[in-house]
Simulated assay, not measured.
Amino acid sequence: MASEQQKKTSGNPVFPGWYADPEGVIFGKNYWIYPTYSAPYEKQVFLDAFSSTDLTNWQKHERILDTTSVKWANRAMWAPSIVEKDKKYYLFFGANDIQSDNELGGIGVAVSDKPSGPFEDHLGKPLIDKFHNGAQPIDQFVFKDKDGQYYMYYGGWRHCNVAKLNNDFTGFIPFEDGTTFKEVTPEGYVEGPFMFMRGGKYYFMWSEGGWGGPNYRVAYAMADSPLGPFKRIDTILQQDPEVATGAGHHSVMHNKAKDLWYIVYHRKPLENPSRDHRVTCIDEMKFDANGMIKPVKITMEGVAQQKVK
């Protein structure tokens, strides 16, 4: 096996262990990945994080958040999303896999002075604990728009909502029509929303298919507004039966200095196809001359060694 000095590509998976639903983000000169610990729901009581200066060598930060800090959470801590605001780091997460409005759980938020944590519960209760527009309160992604407004996109059970976060992330600001949660579900949507901007356009992405099966995949839409409408364009990430199956629930990192785009996602190894055997991978994401996302080729090699700046 190559030493750290000799290692020229990340390889896939990029770090050992069963991890899914990864959010990739750049803070300063470091790449970070915040994934779900992939295990039976009752064992999903903590979140780990991973950092790297070059995409190839990753450091594990154990238990940056766990249920001892979030008293209302007891299982199924899922799909973290993180933003930096006013020199603090806010980590949004799902917990308890609630099936109705009568259960305790939903989407929470934790805060820390460092991206490596430890994180503490910001509210002492869920931020969203009800089914609005049919959306299970899971799989949240927080997006900062060009005007500084933070939006949360979230939802399972084939429904996606968007809401405007207030300034201190303790609640939401209603839209002009008085509603707080707007449904923006595109065709084919199942879960795992993600948003980024490029060339003045909003790229909205999501996962389709069943998360435990081989046909999990990612599709996208483009719009002129963070509220859509979002019309499905194409599938851009999916299984390759010669490499891996179940490629989905992704995020995107943009190295602005080099204008390189990376898709961070999970997939299921061919030799370990059981439900919770999911691993985190990175491959390059490219665009055509019209700004459309080219289908991503999933690889065993991963991406080339690359500093942030």
Rank of each mutant, 00 (worst) to 15 (best):
T67V: 15
E84V: 01
I107P: 07
E62N: 14
F50M: 09
Q59F: 01
R63V: 10
E84K: 15
W58C: 09
L55S: 11
N102C: 03
A73Q: 05
G94I: 04
S81F: 04
D86G: 02
S81V: 02
V83Y: 05
S51T: 15
L65F: 02
V83W: 04
K85S: 12
D48P: 06
R75H: 15
A76R: 01
R63N: 14
Y90P: 03
Y89Q: 08
I64V: 12
A79S: 12
S69W: 05
S52P: 11
W58H: 00
T68K: 14
A49G: 14
D86H: 12
T68I: 00
D48T: 05
S52F: 13
K88S: 13
L65I: 14
W78N: 07
V70W: 11
K88V: 02
R75L: 04
I107V: 13
G106M: 13
I64A: 12
K87Q: 09
Y89S: 06
A95K: 02
S51V: 10
V70E: 09
N96E: 10
D66Q: 06
F93V: 11
T53H: 09
K71M: 08
D66Y: 14
Q59G: 01
K60H: 14
D86F: 03
R63E: 12
W78L: 11
N57E: 10
D54M: 12
R63L: 01
A79K: 00
I107A: 13
V83Q: 02
T68P: 01
S100R: 02
D101C: 07
S52Y: 15
W72Y: 10
F92N: 07
F93L: 14
Y90F: 14
D48A: 14
N102G: 12
D101P: 02
T67I: 15
A79G: 12
Q99A: 13
V70H: 15
D97S: 14
I82N: 04
K71G: 09
L55H: 07
G106V: 06
E103T: 05
L55M: 15
T68F: 03
S100P: 12
P80F: 04
S51C: 11
F93C: 12
D86N: 15
K60P: 06
N102F: 08
A49P: 12
F50H: 13
L65C: 01
G106F: 10
G106W: 11
D86C: 03
N57M: 00
T56H: 07
P80A: 10
L55E: 06
D97K: 14
L104A: 09
K85N: 08
D54H: 11
E62W: 03
Q99W: 09
N74P: 00
E62R: 06
L91D: 12
N96S: 09
R75M: 09
P80D: 01
D54Q: 11
N102I: 00
T68E: 14
Q99R: 15
L65A: 03
A95W: 06
H61K: 09
L91C: 06
D97Y: 08
K85C: 01
Y89H: 04
W58S: 08
F93W: 08
D48H: 15
N102V: 00
T56Q: 08
D66C: 03
S51E: 10
M77C: 02
G106I: 02
Y89P: 05
F50P: 04
S81K: 00
N102R: 13
